[in-house]
Amino acid sequence: MAGLEVYQILVPLIALFAITLTLISHFKGQNTLFESFFWVLLWLGIAVVAIIPDEITNALSHALGIKDNVNAIIFIGLAASFFIHFKTFSVIKEQNRVITKLVRKISLTQFETKEKEK
């Protein structure tokens, strides 16, 4: 492992930190199994690419049919980013829906109580 670049040490350390946080969240019951699995896999993938970049990126570019391995990584990064954004958007929408449902339930209960008192 002689001649390691700085990022090849830094990125796996960040990934290790992120995986630890994910596992802590999981055991606190804050993540579903799928979410924890997804994030652990994602950070493991990033760490592996940082440790052996050429082998992985060449294999990916070959598998995707994209000539340049850097382009393959950019393509995968954009796709992953889009997926995460979409997922976040969907989660926020769902949270908003639940809040509105709760607010409506409270307001209707108060309304019915007041109407009965009249």
């Binding site: 509105t100 607010v103 307001s107 309304f111």
Partner: peptide, 12 residues
């Protein structure tokens, strides 16, 4: 009157 305890928007 029916009152939302927090603002949720015109649609809500």
């Amino acid at each position: 009157i029916v009152r939302h305890i927090i603002n949720r928007g015109a649609g809500a």
